[in-house]
């Protein structure tokens, strides 16, 4: 199986590569459209700021390519947020795969949300053998609103969509590569989709 991690200069991808390596898969980094299109599974990572990440995607024309992909794509953290319609972070337009807006947490709670929180209302094979209310590791200041495309929810200030799915596109707000056994199970499930 060929797993490609989309490389557009955003953040730390080493941990994702290592997580797949622990599962016995090699995940290669690439920004080459042909290599990305030929992959069996695609990871769309992201750490950092949304509007500058969108700029990097446009510069490499990956913003056009990504929504046309037909194989399973997993957006992680900012990667998931960039697959949404818009984000309040830097007032950026997203790739529009998910029909949902990304908002900032209210300052009634500490921002960023940092640490382990539970996922509930699990609705996809992505969560096979993962218990409801499993803890996942999250670090974020912005969240996708609860919507029809939510396949998991988390409660922090509000109940929001901590995972999304539309057709072959999946997104998780948490970091499966850093979420201990439950996270590893999720990555394993993704390889089996």
């Amino acid at each position: 199986m060929k797993i490609v991690i989309i490389d557009y200069g955003a953040g730390n991808i080493k941990s994702i590569q290592f997580a797949f390596k622990r599962l016995g898969f090699e995940a290669v980094l690439s920004n080459d459209p042909d290599e990305i299109k030929a992959a069996d599974k695609i990871i769309f990572p992201g750490v950092g700021e949304a509007s500058s990440a969108m700029k990097m995607l446009r510069k490499s024309k990956l913003d056009v390519l990504i929504p046309t992909l037909t194989q399973p794509v997993l957006g992680i953290c900012l990667g998931m947020q960039l697959l949404c319609k818009t984000t309040a972070e830097g007032n950026a337009e997203g790739l529009g795969v998910f029909d949902v807006h990304v908002k900032r947490f209210n300052t009634r709670v500490k921002v960023p949300q940092m640490g382990w929180n539970t996922i509930s209302d699990l609705k996809s094979d992505l969560f096979k053998n993962i218990n409801n209310k499993s803890y996942m590791y999250l670090v974020h200041s912005y969240y996708a609103e609860h919507c029809n495309e939510a396949i998991a929810t988390t409660d922090y200030d509000v109940v929001y969509a901590s995972a999304l799915q539309k057709n072959n596109f999946y997104g998780v707000q948490f970091h499966p590569e850093k979420s201990s056994d439950a996270g590893e199970q999720l990555l394993k499930n993704f390889t089996e989709l």
């Binding site: 590791y137 970091h175 850093k178 590893e184």
Partner: peptide, 11 residues
């Protein structure tokens, strides 16, 4: 750090 990242599945 590289070795820890390789073997440890928490932040």
């Amino acid at each position: 750090v590289l070795k820890v990242a390789e073997q440890v599945n928490i932040p």
